[in-house]
Nucleic acid binder design. Structure first.
Lengths: 125, 125
DNA sequence: CAGGATCCGCCAAGATACTG
DNA sequence: CAGTATCTTGGCGGATCCTG
């Protein structure tokens, strides 16, 4: 098995949600896919500066198993794979919004921010 | 020193917030303190079945450094220390609520839950 | 009662090289 | 282009013993 997920038992809803978003890049992947609707592997890599191929594919696979991400494979040469959010992924992203606003406000106060993509800070994420 | 916090730079608000709630028990500590208003060390231990003294004190110290938790020491014998949430802690807890509801709904669907304290599930957390 | 100090296992995550 | 396969490591979290 490739996934590292616990998938329960959980103490509470937050515990369950954290299990699914835990991972250095998962919330960023969620955000990228939400912004662009659908993205190819290489596009995601470029959108997430610093991520390795291994971690990206690993996180994507786990999120697919968790039903957050849809993976569409086009059997052609050269290969093409498109990733997008499922309904669960979209709702999770929405549930993450208040947390993002809290963090943004905190960053503003303690002055520890770094804008990844233009507009990321402005949107409250 | 002692804390493991990155404290930036962050890519986005979620990143900053996750840095502060990351840790196996932090969201549960937040929840416990929010429910009871103020708790002593031993009370927290009993409220978080499975936590070790080391991890509890470590998480509490980090959360204090992060300005989420207030630590009130009573200089007496035997010692007495009371923990409570700061305003930041309260607002973080509120920002976590939607995520908790998302997770609760998910647990209901995949059937991987375990109620920690009576009422925890009923409250949507 | 409320910690402090240590030792250790495990696994997420990084680096590197190779493939259909 | 979109992965796979290994090796390595930092540090989170568990266990155990000790102290003001």
């Amino acid at each position: 098995m490739g996934a590292s997920a616990r998938r329960g038992p959980y103490f509470c809803g937050i515990d369950a949600a954290m299990d699914v978003v835990a991972g250095k890049w998962k919330s960023l992947i969620l955000w990228e896919l939400h912004q662009h609707g659908t993205r190819r592997f290489a596009e995601l890599r470029r959108g997430l500066p610093g991520v390795s191929e291994k971690m990206l594919i690993q996180h994507l696979r786990e999120m697919e198993e968790d039903g957050l991400v849809h993976r569409e494979v086009y059997h052609q040469v050269p290969p093409k794979v498109e990733y997008s959010l499922t309904e669960d992924g979209v709702s999770l992203n929405a549930a993450l919004a208040p947390l993002g606003e809290w963090g943004t406000e905190r960053m503003r106060r303690i002055g520890a921010g770094r804008v990844l993509v233009d507009g990321a800070a402005a949107t409250g994420r």
